[in-house]
Design a protein around this nucleic acid. Structure first.
Length: 298
DNA sequence: GAGGCGTGGAC
DNA sequence: TGTCCAAGCCT
């Protein structure tokens, strides 16, 4: 084992986070944690993880559940289409392989909501396969350690980092290695204010000094309505529908008034368009057969 | 491959 | 107070 590797492992034993899915052996519970963690901070997942699993303890129970129930249990997590994809995944796995998750990257990536990172994370965490993973934490950490970054926001392309991650990957304890690197990136080698004094490999780091904070490039303005980004309105719509009793629906105009303080008929076209997006994502159902169209969670 | 997709805490 | 950011995925 290299000096670099032993320094990382030593730090992990001392300072790694204790998380409910660490050391978990049930692939389904690993799957749920990984999907929840996509672009979502650990602290947020910690609040929701156990309640979700208590409600849907097995892949079969999740497959049997109503879509609307799954969406409700996703409250507060953001990116609600993840709930839809996870539900579809459960359905698929329950009906094609008796609820058993596949163990290859390709087969996992064929499942809804599973991309390259999540597939490899499941292989490493659930099946103890020797597979290096690179999430944004590890990408940032390796970028800084092995290349000289000039600003805090700079990162090497994922391809470059993955090639390096493969070289650094230890012959044993690959799972602990992956977890250690993610913890380092998340708690020490952070995006805004890295704690280099606490870093076990600071002496190896090519960016140890000299990273500058640079004014962020202004992001492109996103589509907005009355000054509020449309994704916020979409979130409010889903949140409002969550509050309805199971299976209940709402007339469109009533929903409009609930999410826009001054909703009027002139805004109906806009609302229709937003609901169309949500419908395509499998999050809502618009019943347009009667005289007054109604909407509910899918 | 760029852009869309929530939510709430941190700074 | 507003902007940034977070265990990515999909089209």
């Amino acid at each position: 084992m290299t000096e670099f590797q032993s320094a990382v492992f030593r730090w992990y034993r001392r300072s790694g986070r204790k998380l409910p899915w660490r050391g978990e052996r049930d692939p389904y519970r690993i799957l749920v944690s990984e999907v929840m963690l996509q672009q979502t901070q650990v602290s947020r997942v910690l609040e929701k993880y156990s309640a979700f699993l208590a409600q849907f303890p097995t892949v079969h129970s999740l497959a049997r559940a109503r879509r609307s129930h799954v969406i409700r249990m996703w409250r507060g997590m953001g990116y609600n289409n993840r709930a839809v994809r996870l539900h579809r995944l459960a359905h698929s796995v329950a009906h094609t392989s008796g609820g058993i998750l596949p163990q290859t990257e390709k087969e996992l990536m064929d499942l809804p909501g599973i991309g390259r990172y999540t597939a490899r994370a499941i292989m490493s965490s659930a099946f103890a396969l020797p597979v290096p993973v690179v999430d944004v934490n590890i990408q940032r950490f390796f970028s800084r350690v092995f290349w000289s970054m000039s600003t805090l926001t700079d990162m090497r392309p994922l391809r470059d980092v993955e090639a390096h991650a493969l070289k650094q990957f230890p012959p044993r304890n690959g799972y602990e290695w992956n977890q250690a690197l993610m913890d380092l990136g998340a708690t020490v080698c952070t995006a805004r204010t890295p704690q280099c004094d606490a870093c076990p490999v600071a002496s190896h780091c090519r960016s140890r000094t000299g990273m500058k904070r640079v004014a962020a490039i202004r992001k492109k303005s996103e589509p907005s309505f009355y000054g509020v980004p449309e994704r916020i309105h979409r979130g409010h719509i889903i949140e409002h529908l969550r509050g309805l009793r199971n299976g209940h629906s709402l007339p469109l105009a009533q929903l409009g008034k609930a999410v826009l303080p001054h909703f009027s008929d002139r805004n109906m076209k806009w609302l229709r368009r937003i609901l169309g997006q949500l419908e395509r994502d499998g999050l809502v159902r618009v019943q347009d057969d009667g005289t007054t169209p109604r909407v509910r969670l899918a």
